[in-house]
Design a protein around this nucleic acid. Structure first.
Lengths: 205, 205
DNA sequence: CGCCGACTGGACCCAGCGGTCCATTCGCGC
DNA sequence: GCGCGAATGGACCGCTGGGTCCAGTCGGCG
């Protein structure tokens, strides 16, 4: 949203094509990384032409930013409905288990769609970096809401800061994914998620 | 070590040049990433010629792998002597604090030298991936030794697995660095390290 | 001192990449 | 059904980047 390229007048047909391009680009980038993915590959995968890419996107960076938004939506959707109700310890653990499941079914490759993108542009493209931050914000929001709700119900000791726990949780997750990705072994991610849940539970009254 | 390019007969003069190339490449890659760093940049930064690069390294990937080894050495050295004695809770915390310090003095940029490299090649260059795994292994070894020593002295409950705690610790660290890097804010890393220490301490008898 | 291999300089190659341009077709609104 | 802008096709361009090649220099060793 608000991804700069919203001003173009698009017909419904154009919208479909645009979406097709984003989806294919997302897949390629997810597999190969940003710089390794060429516009010609995107063109071929979508059976479009160069002019179409530049009709719908200002340049490659603009396309990448659309991909970031797309991947964020998809990622959050894949975690629903669990994500919407992280307001009990049981649900939190269920969600963590689901995350591990999701990671495993990709054979530990790629890592986190967002975290993976983050590394590639964060020090290079300031606009895209802010998009990444927004993506993390959107994600963390759900955790934050959950922990806040828990505290409101007295299931967190008063000194515990929901925001801090959220950050620690996300860190464990991202790091676990990286290690699993590097080692091609689901264990680090599993352990990291488990540790994160235990850490959060240590703030139970 | 065993980095494939050990067979070349090198004079002391050649060794110096080779080292100069690696060091400059490491800096450039650390700042800009692998694909963004060009061999021409390396050449210019070291005031060498193209033929020298290919005299000392088989290709770019070979140079990158030398950089991995170099960065690992440098990273571990920067953590000494604390790293060698992670065998008490106090030392563990001191080391964690030192890590946070190191991260901050880079203004949260770049993230972890190894983790950063990991994300960029792990799904792309199998040989380099194994080098990354070796690098993580070397690093985790120190943590593992520390926790093992702690358990031997009865400062860990019998059920606690030093290897698992080590993995959880590394995950928190890597994830925290990524978040700090993306947000340009030292806080996530600080919180992640703190959470990791607390998690480890939860296994104290 | 002279050989030989390590070392260095730099011109060159060429494939691939992001990006431009223009001509053509499509299809919605009047 | 026609006009106009959106949508599409695809040739083309300029440059950058990894990699090659050969000619020349340095320096250790007999």
């Amino acid at each position: 949203m608000s991804s700069s390229t919203a001003v173009k007048p698009l017909t419904s047909r154009g919208e479909v094509t645009r979406q097709r391009i984003i989806e294919a680009a997302a897949g390629l980038i997810f597999d190969q990384g940003i710089t390794t993915t060429t516009l010609d590959q995107v063109r071929e995968a979508t059976r479009t032409s160069k002019s179409q890419l530049y009709h719908y996107f200002a340049d490659k960076s603009d396309l990448v930013r659309a991909v970031i938004a797309f991947q964020t939506d998809r990622l959050l959707d894949s975690q629903r409905p669990l994500l919407d109700n992280l307001d009990s310890w049981e649900n939190l653990r269920d969600w963590a288990d689901r995350m591990v499941q999701l990671g495993q079914q990709r054979n530990c490759r790629h890592g986190c769609p967002i975290g993976s993108l983050a590394r590639q542009i964060v020090d290079h493209d300031e606009t895209a970096r802010l998009d990444i931050v927004r993506a993390f914000d959107r994600w963390e929001r759900y955790l934050l809401d959950g922990f806040t709700e828990l505290r409101a119900r007295g299931e967190l000791i008063p000194g515990a800061d929901p925001a801090d726990i959220t950050t620690a949780f996300m860190s464990a997750m991202q790091g676990g994914l990286l290690l699993s990705q590097a080692r091609r072994d689901p264990k680090p991610f599993t352990l990291a998620m488990d540790a994160a849940v235990h850490y959060a539970e240590s703030f139970r009254p």
